[in-house]
Design a protein around this nucleic acid. Structure first.
Lengths: 236, 236
DNA sequence: ATGCGATTTGTACTATCGTACAAAAGATCA
DNA sequence: TGATCTTTTGTACGATAGTACAAATCGCAT
């Protein structure tokens, strides 16, 4: 059934509000928050600077709305995939499924909103690097629950690993994930064209494979207890 | 022998040029390039905005000088440690030594310049996220040689892994490394205080241990060939 | 067609940005 | 001490930032 739009939802151009959101998302994700002006965004969206103020009041409000748009759907998707992963019997398979449930929504469209979750994940990476206050608050509120759920699930499938180690390795996973989206061309360059850093499918498989192995590494306490630790403090 | 400073090197205050560099490094690393104004830097350094222009001409020039200061010493240190690591006999030990040679200089002071390599590495992470042009050029010029040297060394100690996989996993290592320096407090928070994300020694050990395991993961081609791959494309 | 609320436009205001530049101050050596 | 060079200071200028606001415009129900 096709709902008739009320006057509250109508807009002159197809959807200027969405166009502004998409343009801002793209520009913020590639250049950072402060490097992009409201005028840049408006121009990229084919809109007037005043329209941005009208729809989102402030530049911070625009960023806030971008987060609001994506956080819910992406975390919902992750929860669904995590629930499915937890039902996997084999422990090794389950671990891989859990990691995949964490990684896949970050790369692919978690909500089909304006073209994909990869762009939003990259945005998160950049905001995190810049120490953006608006983003920091939302992240802590919205993503920590999800992170804990994944950490717990991983911990259950790797009971002999201390929770502290799981946290560290999850952190490394997120860092690797972010960096893959921030500078994919570096992979292409260093592999001399043999790999395409921008290919999401490759990135996902490589990341899942590497991360599963990292999680399965022996815990730090008992790591190589018989071998002399190579101390890397050298004199120059 | 104590060299008498020439008039070209003298300065009224202990070393205003260094103070500006240190302040800029700190501010850029925590807030990004565009969020920090020349006036912010001058104030943090106890200097006059004009002094920044005098010493570094432009804001880009200041960033450039920060890179020049650190790149050489850090890569030199890495080369030394890598050379030492390559002499390790046991393949497992050698791999760990190589990874450590890559990680340690990024965390600890690579040059004793203004307080440590961790700050500079964090700066690199933030500039990379922001897509800073000045940084991008220097990185590609200066660090790719080092990266290739490490990739080759790792490949030699893991000959059965395709080079492409090594590249991906090195990329993940750098991403994890960056992220550990960008948001260490997230580790503390998620571990509920059981771990200190800001502790360099812990970060290094955790990162080395996890990364070595990641490098040792089976190559993608032959990964779990008998198991059905869990395809994470779900319908909503 | 007309009136009305929603949206877009155009413009302007203030603040701050990077940077230039002349003057002041300090250091060095004949 | 006084001349000279280096460094610091203070100020100013043009550009651009975020945002506010009134006028113009559009879509739609009546």
């Amino acid at each position: 059934m096709v709902r008739k739009p009320t006057s509250k939802e109508t807009a002159r151009k197809p959807n200027m509000r969405e166009a502004i959101l998409a343009a801002a998302e793209e520009l913020f994700a590639t250049n950072g928050f402060n490097a992009v002006s409201v005028r840049d965004i408006a121009q990229a969206a084919g809109a007037n600077p005043g329209s941005v103020t009208y729809h989102f009041k402030t530049k911070d409000g625009l960023l806030l709305e971008i987060y609001r748009r994506h956080c819910g759907p992406m975390n919902l998707r992750r929860s669904e995939l995590l629930a499915a992963a937890k039902r996997v019997r084999d422990l090794q398979d389950r671990l891989e499924a859990i990691v995949r449930a964490y990684v896949v929504p970050a790369f692919t469209s978690g909500s089909d909103l304006a073209g994909g979750g990869a762009r939003f994940t990259r945005l998160r990476a950049v905001m995190s690097a810049e120490g953006n206050e608006v983003a920091r608050k939302i992240i802590a509120q919205t993503f920590d629950d999800t992170s804990h759920a994944f950490i717990d699930a991983i911990h259950e499938s790797l009971p002999h690993i201390p929770r502290t180690d799981i946290v560290w390795r999850s952190h490394f996973l997120l860092g690797a994930l972010y960096y893959s989206l921030v500078t994919p061309e570096r992979v292409s360059r260093l592999s001399r064209g043999e790999a395409d850093g921008g290919d999401a499918a490759s990135a996902i498989e490589q990341l899942v494979q590497a991360t599963v192995a990292a999680f399965q590494a022996p815990p730090l306490d008992q790591a190589a207890p018989t071998r002399r630790r190579t101390v890397a403090t050298t004199k120059t």
